[in-house]
């Protein structure tokens, strides 16, 4: 299986605190890969490091490969232009810009090889709400609408791969399934997706495989079907007594 995006011995430190420890992972073509773990396990730090991005000042070592090319030295805007589309956790759209302007910021690069191109109308079909609210400022959108806008802009940029950090946060339970179903439909068209989400139960319905992260280390990896029966997952996320976002 060819891996579109992979990490080799990825380690991320904040000051003296190692948030991601020697992680190897790969996302193959047309695969939806989930990363699960408790709060503070290092999930966001991991995906941010793949995108070469952070709001803090981490020290990153190890390699990130996009289509076999080492992109570890590229700044985040160049990774984005190269098709590595990341939708971060938290604030991920511009609140001073309208929906229209948020979307217009994105430009496709010259090199279309290996990229999944979405036309404006396809994206609007996926997220019709955005069209209705196109003249509203980002600050006037609901949490769910912001998530949609953030995903829409990532699609318009012609992704090779999509990284989604907590796409379902703040969504009504019914919407979580809807958003993940949209993501799955993209994956079925061939777009590889790496998704981090607290709703492990919902994610496992849609994802192909899952990595389990604990204190910055990968402690489990397997197909979604096998991970459903993994003890740790069962205990922490799927069992009846499961506490969401269990603090180890």
């Amino acid at each position: 299986m060819t891996e579109i995006l992979s990490a080799r011995s990825l380690t991320v430190r904040y000051g003296g605190n190692t948030a991601v420890h020697d992680v190897d992972l790969g996302i193959g073509a047309g695969r939806m890969v989930a990363v699960a773990g408790a709060n503070g396990a290092g999930k966001s730090t991991l995906v941010n490091a793949l995108a070469g991005w952070s709001r803090g000042y981490p020290v990153v070592s190890g390699d990130v490969l996009l289509d076999g090319q080492n992109i570890s030295r590229l700044p985040p805007h160049q990774r984005s232009r190269g098709g590595l589309q990341h939708v971060p956790e938290g604030k991920n759209v511009f609140s001073e810009l309208t929906v229209e302007e948020n979307l217009a910021l994105v430009r496709l690069g010259e090199d279309h090889a290996g990229r999944f191109l979405f036309s404006r109308s396809e994206v609007i079909d996926l997220f019709p709400r955005l069209h209705e609210r196109r003249h509203h400022k980002g600050s006037a959108l609901s949490g769910g609408e912001r998530q949609m806008l953030a995903m829409a802009r990532a699609l318009l940029a012609g992704p090779r791969i999509l990284l989604l950090d907590e796409p379902s946060v703040g969504l009504a339970p019914r919407l979580i399934g809807e958003v993940l179903a949209v993501v799955r439909s993209l994956v079925d068209r061939g777009l590889p997706v790496l998704v981090v989400d607290q709703n492990v139960r919902a994610v496992l319905e849609f994802a192909d495989e899952l990595y389990l992260l604990e204190r910055g280390r990968i402690v489990g990896h397997g197909s979604a079907a096998s991970m459903k029966n993994d003890d740790r997952i069962l205990k922490a996320y799927l069992g009846d007594l499961a506490v969401k976002g269990d603090l180890q």
């Binding site: 995108a51 991005w53 952070s54 709001r55 700044p75 985040p76 805007h77 984005s80 232009r81 589309q85 990341h86 939708v87 971060p88 604030k91 991920n92 759209v93 511009f94 609140s95 001073e96 810009l97 910021l105 994105v106 430009r107 690069g109 802009r153 940029a157």
Partner: peptide
């Protein structure tokens, strides 16, 4: 508004 976020938009 947010120079860091802008980077993810390819800016």
């Amino acid at each position: 508004e947010d120079p860091k976020l802008a980077q993810l938009f390819g800016i």
